[in-house]
Every structure is written in structure tokens, then in C-alpha cells.
Design a binder for these strands. Sequence first.
DNA 1: ACAAAAGTGTTGCCATTACACCCATGC
DNA 2: GCATGGGTGTAATGGCAACACTTTTGT
Lengths: 227, 227
Amino acid sequence: MTMQKIRLAVDAVVFGYDRQYTQIGLLLIKRKIEPFINQWALPGGLVHNEESLEEAVSRELQEETGVTINYLEQLYTFGTPNRDPRNRVVSVAYFGLVRPDMFTLHASTDALEAEWFEIHNLPPLAFDHQQIIDIALERIRSKVRYEPIGFELLEEKFPFSDLEKLYTTLLQEDIDRRNFKKKLMSLGVIEELQEHYTSGAGRPAKLYRFNRKEYFELKEMGGNFSI
Amino acid sequence: MTMQKIRLAVDAVVFGYDRQYTQIGLLLIKRKIEPFINQWALPGGLVHNEESLEEAVSRELQEETGVTINYLEQLYTFGTPNRDPRNRVVSVAYFGLVRPDMFTLHASTDALEAEWFEIHNLPPLAFDHQQIIDIALERIRSKVRYEPIGFELLEEKFPFSDLEKLYTTLLQEDIDRRNFKKKLMSLGVIEELQEHYTSGAGRPAKLYRFNRKEYFELKEMGGNFSI
DNA sequence: ACAAAAGTGTTGCCATTACACCCATGC
DNA sequence: GCATGGGTGTAATGGCAACACTTTTGT
């Protein structure tokens, strides 16, 4: 058997939530090398010899976009022989979530262009990255229903309406405000704070906070987060 | 940057269901090369340059065990730098399901020893394979609740009690026979045949068959398989 | 006073659960 | 006729969905 000539890469599908415009954002970079030079693509790159896959993702994200990731999870590994036109590259895709304060990119970092795109209005993408994104979207949409990952897209303290809007935006379906709150509060993993937030118009909203500790206890007892 | 020295492998966690003893079986091979020579391990090996990951899994399974796989799904990619004591090997793990007729191994194939083990009575395993198996078990247990993969472990035509026993065995919890059947039949994806099966003792059982076509139609319409 | 957003309870329905006896066959 | 496994219905409960008006603030 001949020597294996397969390169291993990682790619990151990073989502953010834009409270202002109630949109799901996706982080892309513009490639500055061939192939697909000057096209938009997912942040990512080859894995170094001594780093773990997660370290590789974080490093590439830092180098290419300056974004700090809040939640990272392995998505799927793409290994079709010709997904890269030059060499064989197998890529382990991750999906990540970032907080709203990351939404204004410090484009300063390094040379590459990095930008947020509205999830339903993406430019043409390099490689099979559109497919990867589709899978990531599917995953986040189903996962958000039975694990409390939505909070990773919000500020630590948030008005309940933010959470509600996040869910409607992500799932593209209407939610009954009363039922939604009832259900979430009944789990006992969200605490009501004594602070308020005023957005400029309308009645000020109480702020809430997700309690990770309570959530782990819930899980220990066989309880389930579920929307 | 120095040349990347990472090898890419695949491993397969293959489950079977033993009707006789109502046990979940796991397929293992005995390694005949270092490292971990003579230890039990998951079937798997390095990916060839021009084959897809799925092809690699099927090939290795065929070479090492002779088993024909009925369902194959990517599980997770394991990439910790030192999971293989010699070189860095990143492994894409798959989990597979086989039909009961595969359960009697044609051990004839090739030289390697391949054997079924009861899932709760495994020998010490090479590498991080125990961890991979744990994750696979978790996955199959949760997946069997909301996707009709249980049928992939049974004969095409099966008595309802087989399905019921498979679920109790897998999920380790009791099931009410009447409610279970009611629920499954109400989905309209299982057809009752006019054939009967007699196991030697007791009343003969009607045979049933999972109807893939109906299932896809159900899914199109937004319906859900769920136990 | 009006516009904008937040807050709040009750009712009906359907899905899930709990539960036990008779039936068909082989020996 | 007895042992073995298969087959079947009903009633109670609880979780989920549907539903609209009042409150607080800024302008």
C-alpha cells in the first residue's frame, strides 16, 4: 500500500444572533489564496501536528476573524475524495455560537476580510461549504429544541422577549409568549433578576439569567430541557 | 510550517440484535499487529487515498469480519493527539447496524478473529475504543426513540414482540405492550401481513413489516416517528 | 393621549398512561 | 389440560395549545 496522502482540516460554522435586526448571522471570511481565491468561505484550515481538533478551530478562528467563541461542538466530518479540487482534504466541521457583543467585528485583526452575513442571504461559497452550513443550520434548529444552547447566543442577562425572538427567528414559527414563558420557567433553570432593561420604547423588561448549575442538577435527575 | 503528519482512519461500532438471547451484540476483532497486539478492538483502519470514508468503513468491515452492513451512520471524529501511542491518528467513527442473519459470523473470512460480544460484557479494548463505544451506545439509544432505526436490527418481517423486546433490551426500561403497539400502528408506517410465525411454543404471531415508503411520506408531511 | 412593548390566567382537548383478561397453539 | 406467548379496550390524568386584555413606559 502506498503512503497516505490525505490532509486534515477543520472548518467552523459560527452563528451569532443580531438583536437589533433579529437575524441569525453567519461568520465568513474572504479567501486570499487559491483555490477559490477571493471567494467567501468558512473560517478554517489545516490541523497542526500537536494540537487537538478543537484547538485547531479556536486558533483558526482567532487568526482569521478575531472572534471569541462561546460554544463549540463538533458537527460532521466531510471526506468525499474531490471536495477540494487540488489535494484530498478531509475536514472536520464544527459549529460555534458567539455572544452579541462579538457581532461588531474588530475587522482590525490581521489581513483577511471577515464579515457577518444574514443566514438567508449568503454569497456563493467555496468548496462544499454551503452544504456544511445547511447541515449546521439543521443541527442548531433541532438542538435548540432540546438543549439550552439558545442562551449562548444572548447576553448573560437578557429580557425574556429576546429569548422569544431568538426562537421565532431560528425556528421560523410563531410562539405563544405565555406558553413559552410558562414552560421555560417551569424547568427552574432560569432566574428572574431584579434588574430591568429599557429599550427606548414601551414598558421596561425584567432581566433573566440562565442558571447552568440548576440545569446540570435537572439533568442529573433525569429532567429534560425541551421547548 | 512543517509538513502535516496526521493519519486518517475509520472505525466501526457495529451493533446486532440477538433474538435468541435478547441481547445487543457488538462486533470486535482481535488485533494482530502492534500496538495493542492480541487485544480486542473495533474493526477499522486507514483510509485509502481515493475512497470515501464510507467506502473505507465498508471495506475494512468486509476485510476484517465479513459482515454485511445494513445501516451506516457517521458517529464522531476522535482527534486527541495521543490517542494512538505511536503516530498521530485521527479516526472517524461510524456506527452500523446489521440484521440477525449476520449474527452467526462466517469466521472463515481471512485470518483475523472476529466475534460478537454482549454489550455489557466487553473485554478490555485497545486505544480509546471503549469511549467510542460508549458514545455510540448513547447515540443509538437516543436515536431509536425518534427515528425508525430499530427495524434495521430485525428481519424484514418480524413479530411485534421482537420489536418490543428490542426496545426493552436497548432502552433498559419496561414497555406496555398495548400502548407500544397502539402508538406504532397509529403512525401508519408498519403493515400487518397475513403471514404468521410460530416460535415453537405459544400462540403464533402475526408478522409485520416496516414500510419505508410510508415513512418518507410521513416525514414529508411533517410527521414524526417517536416512541 | 397614544404608541410601543411587557406582563399575565383560564379553559378545552388530546395524547399518554395505567391496567387485566382471553386466545391460539404445542406438548 | 396446561404451559407458553400473543392479542386486545377503556377510563383517568396531565401536559399542551388556544386565547385577549391590562400595565408601564416614552414621546
